[in-house]
C-alpha cells in the first residue's frame, strides 16, 4: 500500500483499523521499557531525584513542537492541494499537541518547585511553551467557531502557517527577553553534560511518547473522518426529508 492510497479517506480508515492495535501494542511495550529504564536511572548529582521528571518533560515539549510541525505540513496540504485528509490530520493533531504542551507546562512547574522554590518562573523555555499553548488554544477555538469543516480547515491552515513562521521568532525573543531579565539563577540543561545513564532512558521515553502520539493521531483522524461522514449523512437526510 503506497502513500497515495492512504490519501483516500476510506483506505485510510481500513489502514487505521488494521494498524491501530499494533501501534497501541508497540507503544505499551515502549512505555514499559522506558519507564523501567527511567526508574532505574541514577539521580543527578545536582538535582537529585527530580531529574526523573525530565523523562516526561522533555518528550512532552518535543511532541508539542512535533504536533505543530505536522499541522503546518497538513496546512500546506489543505491550502495547496485542497486535500480533505490534510484537513482531518490538522484538526486531529491540535488537541493532542495542546494536551502535550500542557503536560510539558505542568511537569515543568512541578520540576521547578523543588529546583527553583516556586511553581512558575518566567524561564525562557517555560514562557515560550506557554505562548505555544496559547496558540494551540487559538487554533482549537478557530476550529470550534467555524461550522463548515473545509472553511474552518482553510482558516486554521493559514493561522497554523503564520504561527509556524512566528514561533521561532517568539522563541528567539523570549530567550533574549529572559537573558535581559534574569540570566543567572536559572539552571540550564545544556550546562551540565548529560550522562549516558540519563540520556538512554530519555531517548527511549522520547520514542515511546512519539509512538503514543502517532497512535493517538491516527485514532483521532479516524474519529474525525467518521464524524464528517455522520455530518454528511445527516445533511443528506435533512435534505431528503425537507
Amino acid at each position: 500500500m503506497s502513500l497515495v492510497d492512504l490519501a483516500n479517506p476510506s483506505r485510510f480508515l481500513k489502514f487505521a483499523n488494521r494498524a491501530l492495535p499494533w501501534l497501541g501494542g508497540v507503544t505499551v511495550i515502549a512505555f514499559a521499557f522506558g519507564l523501567n529504564q527511567a526508574m532505574g536511572a541514577p539521580d543527578d548529582y545536582q538535582q537529585g531525584a527530580t531529574v526523573k521528571i525530565m523523562f516526561l518533560h522533555v518528550p512532552s515539549a518535543w511532541l508539542g513542537m512535533l504536533a505543530w510541525g505536522i499541522m503546518s505540513i497538513a496546512a500546506l496540504g489543505t491550502l495547496v492541494w485542497r486535500h480533505p485528509l490534510a484537513d482531518v490530520a490538522a484538526k486531529a493533531a491540535a488537541p493532542i499537541g495542546a494536551a502535550f504542551t500542557l503536560l510539558c507546562l505542568v511537569t515543568g512547574s512541578l520540576w521547578g518547585r523543588p529546583e527553583w522554590g516556586t511553581y512558575w518562573v518566567w524561564d525562557a523555555r517555560l514562557t515560550s511553551e506557554l505562548v505555544l499553548f496559547l496558540l494551540y488554544l487559538g487554533v482549537i477555538a478557530l476550529w470550534r467557531t467555524v461550522e463548515d469543516p473545509s472553511r474552518a480547515a482553510r482558516a486554521a491552515a493559514i493561522l497554523t502557517l503564520v504561527g509556524a513562521v512566528d514561533l521561532p521568532i517568539i522563541k528567539f525573543s523570549v530567550d533574549w527577553w529572559n537573558t535581559l531579565h534574569q540570566g543567572a539563577s536559572v539552571f540550564r540543561l545544556g550546562g551540565s553534560t548529560i550522562y549516558p545513564t540519563i540520556l538512554m532512558p530519555l531517548l527511549v521515553m522520547a520514542v515511546a511518547f512519539t509512538l503514543l502520539f502517532v497512535t493517538l493521531h491516527i485514532a483521532a483522524m479516524r474519529n474525525e473522518i467518521l464524524r464528517r461522514r455522520v455530518r454528511t449523512l445527516r445533511l443528506m437526510q435533512a435534505q431528503a426529508t425537507s
Partner: peptide, 17 residues
Amino acid sequence: LLLAVLVLPLTVPVLIF
C-alpha cells in the same frame, strides 16, 4: 473576541522588543 485570542500571542515579539 476570537480575533484577540488569535492575534495577541503572535504579537509577543513586538511587545518584548
